[in-house]
Design a protein around this nucleic acid. Sequence first.
DNA 1: AATGAATGAGATTTCATTCAT
DNA 2: TATGAATGAAATCTCATTCAT
Lengths: 200, 200, 200, 200
Amino acid sequence: MDNKPRKERERQAKKQDILKAAREVFAQKGLHAATLDEIAEKAEFAKGTLYGYFQSKDDLFASMLEEELVKFEQCIIQVLNLPLAPAAKVEKLVKTMLLVFEQNEDFLRLLSKERPGMSNIQVGEKMMDHFKTLTRLVSGMVKDGIKEGVFAAKDPVRTSVALFNLVHGSAMSSLLNHKKINDPEEAKFLTGLFLNGIKA
Amino acid sequence: MDNKPRKERERQAKKQDILKAAREVFAQKGLHAATLDEIAEKAEFAKGTLYGYFQSKDDLFASMLEEELVKFEQCIIQVLNLPLAPAAKVEKLVKTMLLVFEQNEDFLRLLSKERPGMSNIQVGEKMMDHFKTLTRLVSGMVKDGIKEGVFAAKDPVRTSVALFNLVHGSAMSSLLNHKKINDPEEAKFLTGLFLNGIKA
Amino acid sequence: MDNKPRKERERQAKKQDILKAAREVFAQKGLHAATLDEIAEKAEFAKGTLYGYFQSKDDLFASMLEEELVKFEQCIIQVLNLPLAPAAKVEKLVKTMLLVFEQNEDFLRLLSKERPGMSNIQVGEKMMDHFKTLTRLVSGMVKDGIKEGVFAAKDPVRTSVALFNLVHGSAMSSLLNHKKINDPEEAKFLTGLFLNGIKA
Amino acid sequence: MDNKPRKERERQAKKQDILKAAREVFAQKGLHAATLDEIAEKAEFAKGTLYGYFQSKDDLFASMLEEELVKFEQCIIQVLNLPLAPAAKVEKLVKTMLLVFEQNEDFLRLLSKERPGMSNIQVGEKMMDHFKTLTRLVSGMVKDGIKEGVFAAKDPVRTSVALFNLVHGSAMSSLLNHKKINDPEEAKFLTGLFLNGIKA
DNA sequence: AATGAATGAGATTTCATTCAT
DNA sequence: TATGAATGAAATCTCATTCAT
């Protein structure tokens, strides 16, 4: 019988359940205030069972965050690969990021809460890597726009970071004010500001 | 002897020492991961002494954050009161915020770390209030610009939030990448992006 | 395997071990002076383990006291249900109470120490309830004696309280003077005093 | 100038203020739960000042209790010295004790709370001594009654202890049930029970 | 003598991690 | 593999005592 894969599939499914519970609790409470008790309960496993899947609380956190970052990255890459003009691509990117943040508020929170000065250095390093990758990817889009003459020749890296900050900050603001994150008005506003500024 | 004022002055000086130590540790570790042991050691007091100045860890945190927020707010108000044209005022605002963040990296970190979903509700409420005040103040500047016809009639509130996110995000990014926060290039870039966007 | 009951039985046994240790320490030191360290050591568990069985020190104390009070109450009820003449029942009651106090010196001490002005209001209330119940029960016996004409028609409630004070006070006195609590002489003396007074 | 005595008198007055505050707080909270902060505040002194009058918290407690016990003892002695027949003297004794307990509820509570198993051995010893003295004194009265043929020849020591328990227990019961401690009915009841028992 | 800020030992409580079943 | 009871280190907070003023 070839049921090894099934077993392995089941194991992965369980691991995903744990990661999901972890994401929810870590996002709500932060790395330190979250307890394995709560995560275990949410995942419907005994506390000890988590240690069959992750080496420690820190490992669980790191794994969860890594997974989310990869998913986010892949999503961004997909958008960047779309056959669109630079300005349209910016709009699509803004909309997509807002959508992702709306569908995964946990990730949105984690991004704010745990980015700066992670005590766990390894996690911090990984996070930094992902941000650099993202910046590099978006920079490409900006450079394309410059080449095509539709974007002014400003610093592409700074521009990428600014775009991310604009969208992420907007999503956080909506979240805290109990407003819709993926609001078309907001997307239009952000895109407009990014492309044209506020000058008359 | 009229040494009551001196005693009181000394007490306030000690309180400031504690608040400073608290700010440093809370900024680095976050509310939960920070320990009173570390704060006490940094303030060069015994652990118990802190309780002569603050009722609890939470109270210490709240007091510290409140003080920083007030200082920040006053700083912003000063800039907004300067007799400058809207565009110049934006530039001045960006420069000032970057300067403040550079001089008080702890505050910069705290702003990121503790803004979302503070478990301590009271602190969260206060923080929200300060953000609303700031948004209102900056909105005023934006409205002035619109009246004068130098700013396009976009949503002033969204515009204010965006400006804050742009600058704060930039500062965080610089901090994490070990770059100078209050970099004239960066200030110029941010101002330019905000006013004119990136379109050619 | 039907070992759920066994597990549950073991858990209850452990709980009883903790309650016993708690009783001993609380009786000796009182609620406040007793430490969880000492209780845990006596129960041969780690400090933290106690929190798997009780929510807090106060909860442990309350649970322990409640259990003891219930046991005491049931014991008194048994005696009152015996088919004896009132005077004989008084004698039996005195003997039984002295025996219980001798076998459970901890309870005897607790009764003195923690009766008055419990800071923990809930515990105090419960204790009062048990005392009222006991008084009611013994009052019944006194009323029976009055009906049968063997007891003079004095206030049954005051009489019940007096009997309890007489026996409890005697036991405390014996305890403090390192004398036998359940001494037949003492029992006879107390019964005689209660029934006939000291007049010649 | 002979103002040493005045100074000394003032010092004693202050000491009394502290002892009074101590009595109130210790009676309410018990030895352990009481804090010097609360006592100092009630005495209207700074905490450190107490150490100019007493060596330690334990010393303060012991001094306070000793003083109360001496006052109580002297009161009892006065009654026992009255030129009354034994039965009348019993009645007077009961009334006096109830009165004292009513006027000094703190002392009444202290007697219950701290009698058994004082962790502070020295205090416990002293308390025991006073109880023995009291028992001896009351025993004398009982013996007189026996000699005069008005009391049956029962154990005078046990009889003394019983009388004390009866009255003290009654006072505690009244206190806990928010009833008047020095109630003439109660005094009559207790005297009657002690002298004649409850038999018809 | 009086003060009260400072101390630090010690108390309660939490929770990541282990391990016998 | 899954469990959850047990552990004990570490955190917050209290308070008797000291001491410089």
